[in-house]
Design a binder for these strands. Structure first.
Lengths: 343, 343
DNA sequence: AGCGTTACCGGAAACGTTCTCGGAAGCCAT
DNA sequence: ATGGCTTCCGAGAACGTTTCCGGTAACGCT
């Protein structure tokens, strides 16, 4: 590895001082035009690139953002794309790390990014994460944190999130309007806040319609297709089986669908199904699955915007909370009344 | 922003020199045990963290890898996961940037990552990229580059890739064995090497079976679902329509499937369909779509391993090329002979 | 002739760390 | 007591850059 040319090399070769070279390069004041020309020419010639590490050391800024996400599924990768868009525009580079839903991995990632000296963090926590000491350490170093999508409960930081309760409400309300009477919900682990909020919306809708809550219709299982498949099999095996299922992710909806088909039930007549996230795949399945869409790209953009704002001002934003609204897309899996407005 | 404590602060408070503090912290040789204890204690107390920026400046290493990918679809995000796995293990942090299939964006990302002073790059090029001058600039600075998946033709760097030709061959050979006679191929833009290689495999299979190549059955269109849909509609409108379609991505297979269904044709009897990538969605569709699986995670891991190797040794690896094998998964969309071995 | 002004430039500190070099004690043996 | 060895420690350079502070000419004005 041959060393990159530095300002010093230029100075030496032109027999002028380092300071003058620096001034010439960043066309600050008071440099002889000829000198400047010579410097610029030589810089071009030897392909001089300023060493950002030295600059960062001087300015205590690296212009990079550490982004930690539990995975890169459809929704989160859309969010990251949103973050990327805004960050790039503002001159920041984004470092994305996946915690793989692991608390330990999240800690490692946090430390690594700290060591890489990112200027701050935009974080969505893993499903395992209960303690946030590793994030508080970041704040001890006075680096800004923005949290989005999956929020820890006790971290003082601006939050960008979906109105998950409203999403759960819309889905359930829709099923009720379609005449379903025994609506089950397939939730994620009960430690996962976004899941619980969606269940809250479900409960709210039942209450809103004076329907009784049945504990055995609320199932918590792991956040993925296979678990949803088995959970659904159990649900369908009940003496009084549910006539509709709301799953808090599309992955789970797919698992549920497989179990439903296996059982020989027809959607939407025998049973209704609504998922969450509005992944493109929902349109493609037979039947197409209704799903609650979230503005993932916008959430990412909003998070990055708040981050930039934090970097550029000293006002306290830790209590800022931005909540974006979801929107239900009704498809074949849950639409049995024809007069429903199709969007 | 209050400044983080430095080694200097410790030195001052203990009335010892900076050098001694440095030695005490990195338990190098020859420090009075008492002094060391005092230093460690104070460091712990004020939560001292070494400034990696200063270290990087000193050692000219940041221990981070810039990864540039055209997008984060299923396959690439698996590959990135593979890179992440190996890199983390080796003490590197990964910075992922998406070029969004844009040449301009790719250049910007490259520059940004260079400025962030990553130690090197692992790159999959955008579909627009023809020139690689921006990558050669990296190499001018003596930073290692590993390229994977989508390879530029004229860059001297180690390459990790799938045997795309073999994938195309397997898919086509399978269709031929199933008795299909007029096999069309839906390819990506003809600038895209991985697409062309898959088509080469298709041609090879035809030749291998003494079948005639028909130019009008080879369609180049954009790499996504909608274009594939329209292209398929055209194909099916031909006087002598194809009786099978091999698409070089699952996204395109889905587009083709929609057109096929719209036309009222049945898979696999009226028409056969094979996709590429083996995305999970292929299993879920009706009919389930046959698809060529690629070991994406392994490709990512291999790329990162080669990168680490490059960092740790000076031997020239620019001519190294690792080729991984794809594997066809046969499903309903193309299996009309029952004696076919199902995997 | 002396002074102030202008235009240009160099020295050096600073950012936080490591590392080489050498120096100051203390000790032992002669 | 002198030499040499060990043990500990400090000074200072180095990494690449910016920027403050000051200095030196040349020039014009009184």
């Amino acid at each position: 590895m041959i060393k990159a040319p530095t300002i010093k090399d230029i100075a030496k070769r032109l027999n002028i001082s380092i300071s003058t070279v620096s001034r010439a390069l960043r066309n600050a004041s008071e440099v002889n035009p000829e000198t400047r020309q010579a410097v610029l020419k030589l810089a071009e010639e030897i392909n001089y690139q300023p060493n950002q590490l030295a600059l960062s050391l001087l300015h205590k800024q690296t212009h990079s953002i550490g982004v930690i996400v539990p995975n890169l599924d459809y929704v989160l990768s859309m969010m990251v794309k949103g973050i990327d868009e805004v960050a790039l525009e503002a001159g920041y580079t984004v470092m994305v790390c996946q915690s793989n839903e692991s608390y330990g991995r999240e800690i490692v990632n946090t430390r690594r990014l700290m060591e890489s000296l990112v200027d701050g963090f935009i974080i969505s926590i893993s499903s395992e994460t209960k303690l946030v000491d590793h994030f508080k350490k970041i704040q001890d170093q006075k680096k800004p944190i923005v949290i989005f999508d999956r929020l820890p409960t006790d971290l003082a930081a601006p939050k960008i999130r979906l109105d998950n309760e409203d999403g759960g409400f819309q889905a359930t309300q829709h099923l009720i309007e379609q005449g379903y009477k025994r609506i089950a919900v397939l939730a994620g682990p009960d430690t996962l806040d976004i899941s619980n909020k969606r269940v809250d919306g479900y409960l709210k809708a039942l209450k809103h319609n004076n329907m009784r809550v049945q504990k055995d219709l609320i199932i918590h299982c792991d956040f993925d297709q296979d678990y949803a498949y088995f959970a659904t099999k159990e649900l369908l095996g009940m003496k009084k089986r549910p006539d509709a299922i709301f799953t808090i992710s599309d992955r789970m909806a797919i698992g549920a669908m497989l179990a439903i088909k296996e059982k020989g039930l027809q959607m939407p007549n025998d049973i209704g199904l609504v998922g969450f996230n509005n992944e493109p795949v929902t349109k493609l399945l037979t039947p197409a699955i209704s799903s609650v869409d979230q503005p993932a790209f916008e959430i990412g953009k909003a998070a990055a915007k708040v981050f930039i704002e934090m970097m550029n001002s000293d006002i306290d934003m830790t209590s800022r909370e931005i909540v974006l609204k979801p929107k239900l897309f009704i498809r074949e899996s849950s639409q049995r009344l024809l007069h429903t407005v199709v969007k």
